[in-house]
Amino acid sequence: MSKSDPNRVLRRLPIVVGWLGGILLFVNRMFTSELTNSQSRADVLGVILSALLILTGMLWQQVQSRTPDSVKLVGEEGFEIAPELPEVVKTELAWASRLLLLNTATRSLVVVYQGKVILRRGILAQKSEVTPGAILNRVLEKQKPVYLVDVKAYPGKIEFDYLPENTQGIICQPLATEGAMILGANAPRSYTKQDENWIAGIADKLTVSLKNLELKSKDY
Rank of each mutant, 00 (worst) to 15 (best):
D43C: 00
F79W: 09
L100A: 08
G22V: 02
Q168Y: 02
V74C: 01
G75E: 03
T56F: 13
V117D: 04
K211N: 13
L10P: 01
T91Y: 08
Q114K: 15
A153Y: 03
V16K: 00
K157T: 05
N103P: 01
F26P: 05
Y147T: 00
I170E: 07
L210F: 09
V139L: 12
V146P: 08
N137Y: 01
K144Q: 11
Q64E: 12
V151K: 04
L101I: 02
L101E: 05
I171S: 13
D43R: 08
V27R: 10
L55Q: 05
I48C: 12
E129M: 08
R11V: 01
E87V: 14
I158G: 01
V71Y: 08
T36A: 07
L99E: 06
A180W: 05
E34N: 13
E165C: 00
E84S: 15
P86C: 06
P86F: 02
I171W: 10
L175C: 10
V112I: 14
P132G: 05
N28H: 09
V71R: 13
P83M: 05
R66P: 06
T207K: 08
V149C: 01
Q62V: 05
L100D: 04
E159Y: 04
D204S: 15
D204N: 14
L109H: 11
R98F: 00
R66H: 14
E141K: 14
G18D: 00
L13H: 07
A94W: 09
G46V: 09
L124F: 05
D5P: 04
E129P: 02
G46Q: 10
P132H: 07
K142W: 00
S33N: 15
L148S: 03
L140F: 06
S128I: 09
Q114C: 06
T192M: 02
I15Q: 15
A82P: 04
A180T: 09
F26N: 01
R121W: 02
N7M: 10
I123E: 08
I199K: 15
K72S: 14
F26R: 02
L73C: 11
D5Y: 00
T192E: 03
E129H: 12
D69E: 13
A153L: 13
E80G: 03
R138C: 01
N166Y: 06
K90T: 05
L210Y: 06
N137T: 02
G115T: 03
Q168W: 01
G78A: 03
G46A: 10
G18Q: 07
E165N: 00
T192H: 06
L183R: 11
K205T: 12
Q62G: 14
I48M: 15
N137R: 15
L206C: 07
M58V: 11
L59R: 13
V71C: 10
P132D: 02
